[in-house]
Design a protein around this nucleic acid. Structure first.
Ligand SMILES: [Mn+2]
Ligand SMILES: [Mn+2]
Ligand SMILES: [Zn+2]
Ligand SMILES: [Zn+2]
Lengths: 149, 149
DNA sequence: TTCTAAGTTTAGAATTAGTCTCTCTTGCAT
DNA sequence: ATGCAAGAGAGACTAATTCTAAACTTAGAA
């Protein structure tokens, strides 16, 4: 994608296409790698005389909010511990951030055998969404805690 | 799970069952929640006169290495940016940590409609493994970069 | 018992990822 | 020219995690 296309993309969404924003957008929209903010900052530093980390984060967040980018937490430092080491899937509640288990047998994934050149050691479906009926759930939770039936 | 069971689990793997380890293991093996290390530390602090954060991290890592626990990076602070905002799946190379795209149509997930009480906003299959034929791949990559056929 | 080596825990320093705050600059509109 | 308002920058701050080095505990051996 060339500079001009990027500028139009930004203009379309009312984002002022500053030199920094164009350079950063071009870097991350023009690759199929999945760079960390730090990596984007390093590359951006090559083409721009000066960029601060804060600008890189601000721009990446801005582009994400505008749907041009997506942010994945799949590796990286912070994590959560799972007392069930068996294979199972997960539901991430986008409101609370809570992780809930989905039993392995509840979902089926097909097509894995067609992935080229890879030895699979495991997989998991990550479903994102919000719980419906939070009221019912809260009541159920309270009952459990209080030992009520 | 009671204290004694936990102690046996640890002994089985040659892990010396210190008071701290037993308390921490009991906390995290006895819940279907997915606590952060900080949350485990807070709970552990209630039942033990003194525990340091380092012990909690050491123990959680030890239990994870021994397959009693699993560690997920699904929410939390650190992330990676994806220039393709469309729905697709991901392959995580366990050797390099690299994330690679799997096209949406390459995999199919069934059973989602049966998830109770939840409104799904999106989902993704996360496959973990190692690439086979890294040599071939490197050649393929170079060819692509150089515009060779 | 007492000693000792190995294993474990600790507080705090260091590191890494990310956000926040405040200041400085720049591109216009008056 | 003057004055905003939006944007960008530096650096302080926070949070998650690991590292370090010293202190403590334990299981055996003597
Ligand atoms: Mn921001
Ligand atoms: Mn460790
Ligand atoms: Zn789980
Ligand atoms: Zn992707």
């Amino acid at each position: 994608m060339d500079r001009q296309e990027i500028i139009e993309l930004l203009n379309l969404r009312g984002i002022q296409p500053s030199a920094q924003r164009v350079a950063i957008a071009q870097l991350v929209l023009g690759t199929d790698e999945h760079p960390t903010a730090e990596q984007v900052w390093q590359k951006a530093s090559e083409s721009l005389p000066v960029v601060s980390r804060a600008t890189v984060y601000n721009t990446l967040n801005l582009l994400t909010e505008n749907g041009l980018l997506r942010r994945h937490a799949l590796k990286g430092v912070s994590s959560v511990f799972d007392g069930n080491p068996e294979a199972h899937h997960h539901f991430v509640d986008e409101e609370t951030g809570e992780l809930r288990d989905i039993p392995w047998d509840a979902l089926e994934v097909s097509g894995l055998e067609t992935l080229p050149d890879s030895e699979i050691t495991g997989y998991m479906v990550v479903v994102r969404g919000r719980r419906r009926n939070p009221t019912t759930d809260k009541i159920a939770q309270r009952s459990r805690k209080e030992g009520a039936t």
